[in-house]
Each structure stands twice: as C-alpha cells, then as structure tokens.
C-alpha cells in the first residue's frame, strides 16, 4: 500500500480550476518530486495534503488514514514546510522550535534533545539564539525544515524548499533530505527546478494545469521518450531563413527523427536523433554544403524534454506564460483563514 494516496482531487478558486482530477500515489521510503511550472497546482495539492485546505472532490489517504475524516492523526504523521515561511520575527529560532515542539506535544526533555540534534544537523548553532527577524532566506528555510522535522514525521512535505536560496543553503538542504530518506523518512517535495527533481527524486510526477501528465522514475520518464537530443548552431545567432534551410538540409540524414527550430535560442536547431554516428553524419552533411559549425552537442533527453513532449512547451515557456497572469494578492487571500 502506498504511504500517500491522492485520488481524483478537484479544487476550484472561484472560476479558476486549480486541480482537475489529480491522482497520485507516493510509496513509503522514497523521495518523491512534484515537478511543474508555477500555477500548475503543486501548492494547492500540498495544502490539501497538509489539511489546510479541503478539496471540492476526491480523497486523501496517508498511511491508510483518511485525511478529510481524521485530519489530526494525519497531522501527527506529517511534517509540512510551506513555501512562504511564516515566522515570528520577535522570537529566536530556539523559541520558535520550542513552540513548535509544544504544539506537537513532545515531552520537554525529548523536545530539547531533538532540537539539539536538528540544530547540529542543519548547522544552526551560531544563530539559533538570535531573533528570527535577523535571519537570511537560507537560515529561515533551515529553521523551517527543522520545525517540520521536530516530531520525527513519517512523511515530510516540502513546498518549493529551495526557491530563491543561495547555493550553499540549497546544498545543505539537499544533503539533509537525502539523509532523511536513507534513514527511512518519506519525503514529498514540489519544485519548478528541473535540476532539483533530477538530483533528488527517486520517483516523480509532472503536474501541468491541475493534473498529473507523467509519472515514474526520472530515468523511466526520459527513456520513455527515446532517442538523444542534439543541439546545432551554425553561427551564434542565425535567422529564420537560414534555420529553415538547415532543417531541409538535415531532415534526410539517417537517424534524424525530428527537427525543431528554437526561436528563443537564436534560431538554433533541436534535433531528436536515434542510432549511432548521427553526429558524424550531420557534420559531413554540413561540410558538403559548406556550412560552418558553431556548436554541435549531443545529450540524453532531459526532464525538460519530457515536459516538452507532454505539453508541447518547455517548462520555462510555461513559467513565462503565467508570470504575468498570477494574482499574488488573490493567492494570499486564498491562503488566509
């Protein structure tokens, strides 16, 4: 039985359908990544899971417990680290952790011992007794991670744990998450960073427009696409005319499955290829036509290609598409009680 089962979740905010029939199973003991652009429904999904939000339709089961019927038991099992860190600026980090420990009803002795462990684990010794108002983004996120881990949850849920963080803090958080999974805690995290999911996740789901569009291990997803990816530039910036001419020239080359002109990248060509020595043949073809080669590189398909295949656009394009549409004020209101 999976640790977490989300079945047919639907949630609307007024006329906006945030979730349209989203289903997801997360097995115990793995690090599960939810990948998707902003506005795909990741945060809504995690807020429902954290019992902060009731879905319009669908069911949530954590370790066999119905989260809608018995939210308190689910809260005991779960640590939740929200995206926007709400922190009491007047309290010190230690006081905030104590408060958190009391809200989870840890015995004071247990609580303090556990706090010491986490302070050491997350490298917070130097500043834990300073007021939270003085913390940097990375410090806040570490403190929040600590407060999510205080009661040793069976499932840790993180919403965009490293968004906007410096590389050092990001590395520290990644390290802790890896260790947690090794020690048996299940972790579910959302991210719109491909590298993050790629680097951390044992399994993953790609979410787009409120539903799951692909699910599996990162390798499975990439292999399912098949073929390799080749990027070609004949000069640093081409024009459309030249790009189309190249497309016609290279399409017949053996092993080339598909050629896409990437306008956003200076009319470079993105090729899907299969078989051996395709790069060599491409080079020959270009030589015969007397064309220069500025850059020619082959790579395995990436998660971005997986996303592209499923939605017809790259993750970055999806981000840009919603960038101007988001109403952060409205979203804040939705999360307010």
């Amino acid at each position: 039985m999976p640790l977490l089962e989300l079945a047919h979740l639907q949630k609307s905010y007024g006329p906006v359908k945030a979730l349209k029939d989203l289903s997801l199973d997360v097995p115990e003991g793995c690090l599960y990544g939810l990948l998707g652009p902003n506005g795909a429904g990741k945060t809504t999904t995690l807020r429902i899971l954290a019992t902060l939000l009731a879905p319009d339709q669908g069911t949530v089961q954590v370790a066999g417990i119905d989260a809608l019927q018995d939210p308190r038991s689910v809260r005991c099992l779960m640590g939740y680290v929200a995206q926007e860190v709400a922190i009491d600026k007047i309290l010190t980090g230690r006081e905030l952790l104590q408060l958190q420990g009391d809200l989870y009803h840890l015995r004071p002795a247990n609580r303090d011992k556990r706090m010491q462990e986490l302070i050491a684990l997350l490298g917070m010794q130097d500043w834990i007794d300073r007021r939270c108002g003085t913390y940097s983004g990375g410090m806040r996120r570490r403190l929040d991670l600590a407060s999510g881990l205080l009661h040793r949850p069976r499932l840790l849920v993180l919403d965009e744990p490293t968004v906007g963080l410096d590389i050092e803090s990001r590395g520290a958080i990644w390290q802790v998450l890896r260790e947690l999974v090794q020690e048996g805690t299940s972790v579910l995290l959302s991210s719109h960073y491909l590298e993050e999911v790629e680097a951390l996740a044992d399994r993953m789901a790609i979410i787009d427009a409120g539903r799951v569009i692909a699910e599996g291990t990162p390798d499975e997803l990439k292999q399912r696409l098949g073929g390799d990816r080749v990027t070609l530039r004949v000069r640093e910036f081409s024009d459309q005319h030249e790009a189309e001419r190249l497309q016609r020239l290279l399409q017949p080359v053996e092993g080339v499955l598909q050629i896409v002109v990437n306008r956003a990248q200076g009319y470079s060509l993105n090729l899907v290829v299969e078989g051996d020595h395709v790069l060599q043949r491409l080079r020959q073809q270009l030589d015969q036509a007397g064309l220069p080669v500025f850059a020619l590189a082959q790579s395995r398909p990436s998660l971005d290609d997986v996303y592209l295949q499923a939605t017809g656009r790259t993750l970055m394009d999806a981000e840009l598409a919603v960038a101007g549409q988001r109403d952060t004020k409205q979203e804040r209101k939705q999360s307010m009680r």
């Binding site: 019992t51 038991s73 958190q100 809200l103 989870y104 009680r337």
Partner: peptide, 12 residues
Amino acid sequence: FGFLNRLLVAPL
C-alpha cells in the same frame, strides 16, 4: 502573515 497556518498544521 500565515503564522496561523503554521499553528493549524500542527495536531492541536
């Protein structure tokens, strides 16, 4: 500021 949400996630 969302601190209430932090309280509501806990098993009070």
